[in-house]
Design a protein around this nucleic acid. Structure first.
Length: 179
DNA sequence: CCCTGATTCGC
DNA sequence: GCGAATCAGG
């Protein structure tokens, strides 16, 4: 995976939207492990994990199971399936998931959360709604780091050109992996 | 079995 | 830095 700035931004966006790691991986044409690994390296907010780490309770207790056994794996041969999974996304137009049509070209898909959280009629916490600034959410809503893109929005759309290309996915030639 | 996310560690 | 292998819970 080539983690370009665009790819990272998309990962962040999908992550913030609450997609599962596997789903993000499917959308970006990478394994979920890649998604999780990258998310960790980016220090993205962890999501509720189905498992709970038992070792964190009593550090001082002698019963602490030092560490998991180091995966006995050794230079496992990569399945060609992986390369096959990545190849088509880069070059071939036909989407790997024929059953997964592009989401309807609905405007407000992505910013659903922040929009819902902002009864803008009363408060104006974020930005002037009349301003032509991009309202694509960046970061984790609720954190100090969260903000909107803020770049100049293109005419008639609430997003800048870059994020409009992410928000308005065409049924054909979607830009999911064109980043 | 399927799913989920977290972690380790060879590369 | 990357991500497959693995773990571990639902």
């Amino acid at each position: 995976m080539d983690w370009t700035a665009e790819a990272i931004e998309r990962l962040r966006a999908l992550w913030a939207e609450g997609h599962s790691t596997a789903e993000i991986g499917r959308r970006m044409g990478v394994s979920k492990n890649a998604v999780v690994g990258k998310a960790h390296r980016l220090n993205l907010p962890p999501r509720p994990s189905p498992i709970h780490r038992e070792g964190s309770a009593e550090p001082g207790v002698e019963g602490v199971p030092a560490r998991r056994l180091p995966a006995p794996r050794s230079t496992a041969p990569r399945a060609p399936a992986q390369a096959a999974a990545e190849a088509p996304r880069a070059a071939v137009p036909p989407p790997p998931e024929p059953a997964a049509p592009a989401p309807a070209p609905m405007p407000a898909a992505a910013p659903a959360r922040p929009a819902a959280a902002a009864p803008a009629a009363v408060v104006r916490p974020f930005q002037r709604l009349g301003a032509r600034t991009c309202c694509w959410p960046l970061g984790e809503p609720g954190t100090p780091e969260f903000r909107f893109c803020g770049s100049e929005a293109i005419a008639g759309k609430p997003y800048c050109a870059t994020h409009a290309s992410l928000a308005y996915v065409k049924a054909r030639d979607r830009r999911e992996d064109a980043a």
